[in-house]
Amino acid sequence: MISVHDLHKHYGQRTVLDGISLSFPERRLTSLIGPNGAGKSTLLLMIGRLLEASAGEVRLAGQPIQRIASNAYARRVATLRQATELNLRLRVEELVEFGRFPYCGGRLHADDHRAVDQAIAFLGLDSLRQRYVDELSGGQRQMALLGMTIAQETDYLLLDEPLNNLDMRHAVQIMRALRRLCDERGCTVLLVVHDINFAASYSDHIVALKAGRVHCAGSVAEVVTETRLRALYELDFAISYSARGPLCNYFNPPRDLS
């Protein structure tokens, strides 16, 4: 289980995270939501060890993550950042093979090839396997990157705005893949997501941050309510429910925002 304890992050005078304590349920999909500048990505990147905390600590199964060797950590927790600029001419397959680096240091064995094949099959990327990543569309490239992360075969996956700049179809594909990782492989998935409707439709658990603090956290039913979202985003929400789940409508509020 990943838990964070009184986590702080300051940049000079500016406080980005202001004492966050949380634990993320195992084998569940957790979305981090909140307005811009709430500290969602900062929190996620700290868990992924891509940022250092100013104070407080992150623990994995009770062990502070700074005490775990980078290589060992990479076999347990995989992180995918938003807007990964690749100026490499790589085939999809080669990119996915990088996911095996924590295990084989670049020299792939039979096990590693099996994991690569599985990751590619899991995402249905077979037809793209030999294509160059820089020739793919944004959505396909994001799938390829996700493939690399899946090939890492970790119990925990962290994704920073994986839906950024994707069209609706690719966004749904990515979210379904994450859902399946959780259900079929028992992975714990944490992601930062801006679209409240994706969060509401696919998550088990939601953590809402505002101004560097936890605004509220709990199951979808607990967090996705008109009052809580209104307070979180300072927007007027109308939530309707159908067989496909909740739908949050904030697009055209009847009153002026004040």
Binding site: G48, L50, Y73, R75, V77, T79, R81, E85, P102
Partner: peptide
Amino acid sequence: LGRDQARSLG
């Protein structure tokens, strides 16, 4: 692959 991706690969 870039700093962050390399770090998250251990």
